[in-house]
């Protein structure tokens, strides 16, 4: 890293003074439902993404309220919370998918490494190549399996020859654990696969671009337990190379795959911490209610 880059980082870190987030975090136990200060440590040692004072509005509706959170490199962090609390909304801020919704407005600071992702100088095309996304419902394109995976590399001009592309596609399918099942049927349409296979195809499609972060919005909610187990396994393997943020409604899943967990409630980030701690020893009353099933 050159000196200028280091200077920029320092300057940015100062600008991103944690004090700008108006709430101070407490780690004491909160038994008060009205207390919406984030409990737990929102910072990490080597952040991949940092968010401070993020607010999201859908027209008049305030969907995310002043959320601050760091996402560490090569970690899997799970977002949990009752339906409609803003998990998807927050997730979609991280690769600016919210830009496709005209009434949606985002304020605050979100950074990927040292780039402010809502800055004018940042190109969404590039951002989304760096921050991939997997959706709740598998959405393979109506093309062949091969073309589905090759789509990203092709549009970004990542490869120069057909052989390279072949390698990249195989590689991605292999990493997504799908290669054995589709090796012989690369030219069949992606939609001819089973739901679980389709979702893994979508993961392969996302990792073919070789992103730095992968966002997953309830990737298993449309799948049966066996397909779910396969995807969870896959997430664990992918952690080696990628940072993964996963939204889930399944507590068990969060516990199985993630190192940290963040609990959202009505647009507020209520508690964030080590997954074990959140599930065994929640510090906020709201978190506890949710974990123990008294809520939602």
């Amino acid at each position: 890293m050159s000196t200028t880059a280091i200077e920029t980082k320092v300057a940015l870190d100062q600008a991103l003074d944690l004090n700008t987030a108006p709430r101070k975090q407490s780690s004491v136990e909160v038994t008060d439902y009205d207390n919406r200060q984030t409990v737990g440590k929102i910072t990490v040692d080597n952040p991949k993404m940092t968010c401070r004072g993020v607010n999201v509005y859908y027209g008049e509706k305030h969907a995310i309220k002043n959320v601050g959170l760091d996402i560490g490199a090569n970690e899997v962090i799970a977002f949990i919370g009752p339906s409609g609390c803003g998990k998807s909304t927050f997730l979609r801020c991280l690769n600016r998918m919210n830009d496709t919704i005209p009434i949606c407005r985002v304020t605050g600071q979100l950074r990927l490494d040292h780039d402010d992702i809502y800055d004018k100088s940042i190109d969404v095309v590039q951002l989304r190549a760096r921050v991939g996304m997997v959706f709740q419902k598998p959405n393979p394109f109506p093309k062949s399996i091969y073309e589905n995976v090759a789509y990203g590399p092709r549009i970004h001009g990542m490869v120069n020859t057909k052989a390279e592309l072949d390698d990249l596609v195989r590689e991605s399918l292999e990493r997504a654990g799908l290669i054995k099942e589709v090796e012989k049927r690369m030219d069949e349409p992606g939609t001819s696969l089973s739901g679980g296979q389709q979702q893994r195809l979508c993961i392969a499609r996302a990792i073919a671009v070789n992103p730095e972060v992968i966002l997953m919005d309830e990737p298993c909610s449309a799948l049966d337990p066996i397909a779910t187990a396969k995807i969870e396994e896959l997430i664990d393997e992918l952690r080696e190379n990628y940072t993964i943020i996963i939204v889930t409604h399944s507590m068990q899943q969060a516990a199985r795959v993630s190192q940290r967990t963040a609990y959202f409630h009505l647009g507020d980030l209520i508690e964030v911490g080590e997954t074990d701690q959140i599930f065994t020893n929640p510090k906020h009353k709201l978190t506890e209610d949710y974990i123990t099933g008294r809520f939602g």
Binding site: T100, N139, F141, Y151, H156, R205, A206, V209
Partner: peptide, 13 residues
């Protein structure tokens, strides 16, 4: 819409 989202999420214009 999911088709469009899938493509945009990969960084397509």
């Amino acid at each position: 819409q999911a088709m469009r989202d899938g493509s945009y999420a990969l960084g397509a214009t």
